[in-house]
């Protein structure tokens, strides 16, 4: 009886533990691959285009919409106790600290993360990855490292863009639509914002970038079961990426902003 219970617990834990172990091992081999030449610059730039530049339109729309909505609600709320002047401050702080990194990460994870998992998954089930190994090419170094680096570099960059575009969206709603003075809105925005707010947002974004590429590549790398498996891997990559981003966001915020 007791043995069965223990077996059950083991069975429950085994799979997540296996996954965690594989992710850690993948991360270790990524880090090792990053340090060793040759550095696949072309490959990295290609992935940067895919992860960063091509995600820009979606990120821009998300950012401007969020900034505008945020400003609108803040204005309504603050005007109830006569503090409309603080809308700019709150919009700027929430964009840089929270919405910038999180929204950029979610959009990119949904777009590029899914693509990564699907791409690597297809390569896996069609045994292209095995073929690479046969040719003495380290598949992690060749396929995963560029993606990982692209995520690590491009997400903070996209965060910066999200921050400024969100602030502009807030500016548009408040100054153009609601008629706050442009000067005082900008003052409220820049006077209370500090460099830590922006840098900490970027640190969060780095973490998110690394996390979603790692998860997506892991999901792609361990795909099995043909076309259906690729589908599963893609879904899993997006779901786990989102969960990781949202949950870790709280802990990162608590740690970075105290």
């Amino acid at each position: 009886m007791i043995v069965k219970v223990i077996e059950f617990i083991g069975a429950v834990i085994e799979k997540p533990a296996l996954g965690m172990g594989r992710i850690v091992l993948l991360l270790v081999s990524i880090l090792r691959g990053m340090l060793k030449p040759p550095f696949e610059i072309r490959n990295i730039i290609g992935q940067m285009l895919e992860v960063g530049v091509n995600s820009l339109p979606v990120v821009l729309i998300t950012a401007i919409a969020t900034g505008m909505v945020l400003a609108l609600h803040m204005y309504t709320g603050f005007s109830r106790f006569g503090a409309e002047g603080l809308v700019g401050t709150v919009v700027a702080l929430s964009m840089t600290r929270e919405f910038g990194p999180v929204l950029a990460a979610l959009v990119v994870a949904g777009r590029a993360g899914a693509a990564m998992a699907a791409e690597l998954g297809t390569m896996k089930v069609t045994e292209q990855i095995d073929a690479l190994e046969t040719l003495a090419v380290n598949p992690v170094k060749y396929l995963v490292v560029p993606r990982f680096l692209a995520g690590l570099i491009m997400l903070p960059a996209l965060t910066i863009i999200t921050d400024i575009v969100g602030i502009l969206g807030g500016y548009f709603v408040n100054v153009v639509l609601l008629g706050t003075s442009s000067k005082s809105y900008l003052r409220a925005t820049w006077d209370f914002l500090q460099m830590e707010d922006i840098y900490n947002g970027m640190i969060k974004a780095c973490f998110f970038g690394a996390a979603f590429t790692l998860i997506s590549c892991y999901k792609g790398f361990y795909t099995s079961g043909g076309a259906e498996g690729v589908g599963r891997a893609t879904t899993g990559a997006v779901v786990y990426s989102f969960m990781t981003i949202l949950i870790s966001d709280y802990f990162l915020s608590a740690w970075l902003f105290r």
Binding site: M48, L49, G52, A157, I160, I164, D191, L193, M195
Partner: peptide
């Protein structure tokens, strides 16, 4: 095609650097 990729990434990088330095300047200049 490769150079076009690099061009795009380069433009993006410049854009990001400009925005970041603008924000830094706005916050830090006072």
């Amino acid at each position: 095609r490769k150079s076009s990729t690099e061009l795009k990434v380069g433009i993006f990088a410049i854009l990001v650097i400009i925005v970041l330095s603008y924000m830094t300047f706005k916050i830090g200049s006072l």
